[in-house]
Simulated assay, not measured.
Amino acid sequence: MAEPAQPDNPSQPDNPSQPAKLAVTNQKGGVGKTAVAINVAGALNERGRDVLFVDLDPQGNATENLGMRELYDSDPPTLFDVLTEPDKRETIVDLVESHPEMDVVPSSIDMTAVEPELTLSRRSGEQLHLCLQYVADDYDYIIVDCPPFLGNLMDNALFATRNVLIPALAEDTSKRAFELLFDHVDSLAADYEIAVNERGVVVNRIDVRKTQANEMIDWVNNAFEGTPVWEVRERAAIQRALKNGGSIFVEEPECDQLDVFSSIATNLDEQFGFAEVTA
């Protein structure tokens, strides 16, 4: 059983001397989580922030979408080894890859076997936090793209970041997904005696022609009163940008959803206490 951690939140919004850490998460698959994570990172980069993007999803979609498909099949050590072998934690420094918009810790095929290995770990939910200490000083933000399921990897992301940005589809199935996610978050927060902050909800891939979509947007705004809610419409340009290896800010700068992601980045800067960008 993991030992309870002390409630020392390294992601306090009023302390930019620490990098702001954010888990982009939803236990429901198919919500465009990776697209949101990459474009939020791209928007932060546009604001002059240094971003480390951690692909914690064993499927490696972000790794591929950022043009690093070959690294998914890398020989050890990989992120798997960093998370499961305490004497290799500091080698996370060697895993960091450069991308024009952000630095990246890629996922690997080995990550498909990480869940049972973490279960055997004495501090199963803290491994990512312990690893990130070796790279944190180099960044303003650390964005963690989570897997679409509840488990040890999700626990590691939540414990390491203490902050969540939640992408969701504008459909009724999202209500149950929210319930399951928050049950898990509340349980982990209680077990580790930490606070996990909701930094916003991104209603994603909206088709405004559908009545259900508009009804769901209204439901989210009512359910998350006091929490920022952003609306991202379905656009082929977002998928084209990912296919070409980056965010819409670089690959599709004419996309009409740039303003939404810019708004997310601006709001995050405000929440985490960063000074306004100067020209």
Rank of each mutant, 00 (worst) to 15 (best):
H99S: 06
A189S: 15
D269T: 01
T266F: 10
V232K: 10
D75H: 09
V93C: 03
A35P: 06
N156I: 00
V164L: 12
T227I: 15
V220T: 11
R235V: 08
T161D: 02
D145V: 05
G200M: 13
D269S: 06
A275W: 00
P16L: 05
G200Y: 05
K33D: 03
V250R: 15
F272S: 05
R205T: 01
K28I: 03
T25I: 14
K210V: 06
G32I: 02
P228Q: 05
L130F: 07
D55M: 05
G60V: 12
A43K: 02
S11L: 06
H129M: 11
D183L: 06
K21H: 02
V202K: 08
R235K: 15
D138W: 00
A157V: 02
A213I: 06
M154E: 03
D8Q: 14
I166Q: 08
N61A: 13
F274S: 00
M68S: 14
C146S: 14
N15I: 12
V229L: 05
L268S: 11
L258C: 04
V202P: 07
E198T: 14
L153A: 01
F53Q: 01
V250Q: 15
V51N: 03
E198R: 15
G273R: 02
I92C: 05
N15T: 13
T78W: 10
M68V: 00
S17L: 12
Q12K: 11
S187R: 10
T34Y: 12
Q59I: 05
A265K: 06
L268T: 07
E276M: 06
N39T: 10
F272E: 10
S247T: 10
L56V: 01
E254T: 10
I143Y: 09
M68F: 14
V40L: 14
I143E: 12
F149C: 07
P10L: 05
A213V: 06
D81H: 15
E276R: 04
R162A: 05
Y141L: 13
F149S: 15
A113T: 10
N152K: 11
L180C: 03
G125K: 11
A213T: 11
H184L: 04
A168H: 01
C131P: 00
V202C: 12
A265L: 10
F224M: 10
E251V: 14
T161L: 03
V54R: 09
E3Y: 13
P86L: 10
L169W: 00
D55G: 01
D94G: 04
T278G: 04
L150M: 07
N39R: 09
L44E: 09
P58T: 04
I194W: 12
L71G: 01
L181F: 08
E101V: 01
E234P: 01
S121T: 10
N9D: 15
F159C: 00
A241R: 08
S108D: 07
F272W: 07
D8P: 06
A236N: 09
G273T: 01
L169F: 04
H129N: 08
P7D: 15
L188A: 06
F261L: 08
N156A: 02
T63W: 08
I92K: 03
R205F: 07
M68K: 15
G60C: 11
T84A: 12
G200P: 06
F261M: 08
P7G: 13
T63V: 08
A136H: 07
F261D: 09
T211K: 15
E85P: 00
